[in-house]
Simulated scan of single mutants.
Amino acid sequence: MLYDVVRSVSARVGRGLYRPRIEGLANIPASGPVILAANHLSFCDSVVIPLAVPRRVHFLAKAEYFTGPGVKGRLSRSAFTALGAVPVDRGSGGGAMEALDIGLRRLKDGGVFSIYPEGTRSPDGRLYRGRTGVAHLALTSQAPVVPVGITGTEHIQPIGARLPRIAPITVRFGDPLDFSIGYGHLKTGRARRVATDEVMAAIGRLTGQEEAGVYNDRAAGY
């Protein structure tokens, strides 16, 4: 109930201020488990995706967003919880596996789980190499992966900016990728790498970003 209220109000405000261009919503299944794999340019990507998708979206967020003190901390905790965020301690040794386990549980329940294969925000607008956690989720759950290409959010809240700005946003949802068959002949690690590279290539076609060709060293393991 709270999610529906927050999403409805926030979506109206967001559409009024930013007039986002949203393409390919029909590619998201109306029911059943689905993984949304998106590029990551800004903090506000985690707000844009849940507001654009008609289904409830679960995504990972740093535990710090849920543990801040005072009024600001309570507002942050309430907002992220209402938007479907799941706290994870990215600084712990088991943080990556914990994140993947959370995702698998949400998918097993038939939900929508969003993940950034790059691991964290791009520091320069390029598309970095994907970590194989997205493939682990897809190959284990058999859920389809819908690639998501976001452009424009890097201008709304650049890294280091304290307040959001007004800028045009485009969110494109690509054709679902099915990894449930055709990968059994590959060894597990190789299958994850091949599937992840396919996901990243699909994201790149949606965004037109230059490929960095390397991992984002600032990223967590998932």
Rank of each mutant, 00 (worst) to 15 (best):
T151F: 07
V148S: 09
S180L: 11
F66Y: 10
I115R: 06
V134I: 14
L100F: 00
A63G: 01
I102Q: 08
V194E: 13
G68D: 11
V171S: 06
V148L: 10
D101T: 13
R106N: 08
I156V: 15
I166P: 01
V171Y: 06
G119A: 05
L100W: 00
L127N: 06
G68M: 14
D175H: 12
T188S: 15
G110Q: 13
F173E: 02
A99I: 05
G189C: 02
A195N: 07
V86C: 11
V71Q: 11
P87R: 08
P158S: 12
Y183P: 02
L177K: 02
P176M: 07
V194A: 06
D178S: 07
A82N: 08
T188G: 03
K62E: 02
I159D: 12
T188D: 14
R77Q: 14
A167R: 07
I166F: 15
R162W: 13
M97E: 14
R192S: 03
G84S: 11
R74H: 06
D109E: 15
G125T: 01
F66W: 04
G174I: 09
R131D: 04
L139H: 06
V148A: 05
L177H: 02
T67A: 15
G125P: 00
G95Q: 00
F59W: 01
G152H: 09
P117V: 03
T170K: 14
I102M: 07
Q142I: 00
G174H: 09
V112D: 05
S122F: 03
R74L: 09
I166E: 03
I150L: 14
R129A: 13
V194M: 08
R90A: 00
V71L: 15
R121C: 12
R190Y: 00
P87C: 09
L186F: 13
P69K: 10
L163W: 14
K187N: 15
I102H: 03
G130Q: 06
L137K: 04
V194Y: 05
Y65W: 12
F179G: 08
P117G: 07
H185L: 10
L107K: 09
L137N: 03
L75E: 05
P164I: 00
E154V: 04
P87L: 10
V146L: 06
R77H: 12
G70D: 12
V171E: 06
G103R: 12
L83T: 04
A63V: 04
L107P: 11
G93V: 15
G93W: 11
P117A: 04
Q157L: 15
R162F: 09
L163H: 09
